[in-house]
Design a protein around this nucleic acid. Structure first.
Lengths: 153, 153
DNA sequence: CTAGGTGCTAGACCGAGGTCTAGGTCAACG
DNA sequence: CGTTGACCTAGACCTCGGTCTAGCACCTAG
């Protein structure tokens, strides 16, 4: 019971953030609703606050900067009427995510290529180094086995 | 012609890194082969160096820290014989990438949900705020329209 | 009453990764 | 010849996102 009304420590546990970070987030205006305080000034988080914070964690993990979360929080704090702005902000971040996904997949491809070539190299009692320029045979020679997999334009 | 032998400015252009950053990377030992210098001490990058740097950019974009790139560079610099270590390092980063992909998709899902609900809200000449606790009806009330989509445990 | 645990604020500190500046060298151009 | 532009080094500086400390206030248990 009393699932509404968590202390900062409890919130830290269930969000994975440190209490320091929670206070930081609050100072930076990342919270979409003011945190209540109990009689002696201690923070009391509602279940809604915690859900918001869990979302913040996801946003952060996806690379959204604190300032952007702050903007979103402010819009939500201001209440109904600015839904279009929120939507734009979200769509914007969505684009960032798509971009990052692309970069990750790109790097994954690179790595998978390398991994495959090293595996093959190792299991074959490899001779040449699959990721090395040939040891400077001549001053200006490009021996064709460079970092490979990159596709020279 | 003379595609081997680029100045730092040229390399900056084709890697997207700044000349400052290129020098930083070199200082930090991210380069897998020593950069040559011309008669007056200026850097001369080979095509191989550039390809390596392009890979570095991908690694960075996927969240690999400079120190890790430095380790990889050192292994490559040391030449054949440590392929197993390189492989391990790559596999390790691969795991990081997979993890980040998961986080990104997770956040994407969250955002898509929000976007959808806002779109619907807007096109319906929305009444209630789809991302707001009800305006504190009573001290301890949870009205069931919280940040939504998060799935309370 | 005292100790331990948790919380509070304000503000210092930190590491990562760049970015910029000062002061100098060099080569080419008009 | 002087100027311009690209480059050099060493080192200062900056932002971001936390993290930690000092010094104090509570509350509860022994």
């Amino acid at each position: 019971m009393a699932d509404s009304g968590l202390s900062i420590g409890q919130v830290a546990q269930r969000t994975g953030l440190s209490v320091h970070t929670l206070r930081l987030y609050e100072r930076e205006g990342l919270l979409a609703s003011e945190v209540r305080r109990d009689g002696s000034g201690r923070r009391v988080y509602s279940a809604w606050d915690v859900e918001w914070l869990v979302n913040c964690v996801k946003f952060r993990a996806s690379g959204m900067p604190l300032s952007t979360i702050g903007q979103l929080a402010q819009l939500v704090r201001e209440g109904s009427g600015n839904e279009a702005e929120r939507l734009e902000l979200l769509r914007d971040h969505r684009r960032h995510i798509i971009e990052r996904l692309k970069q990750l997949r790109d790097c994954l491809e690179l790595i998978d290529g390398k991994v495959a070539s090293y595996e093959q190299h190792l299991s074959a009692g490899g001779s040449g180094d699959p990721w090395q320029q040939q040891p400077r045979p001549a001053p200006e020679e490009h021996t064709g086995c460079g970092p490979s997999l990159v596709g020279r334009t």
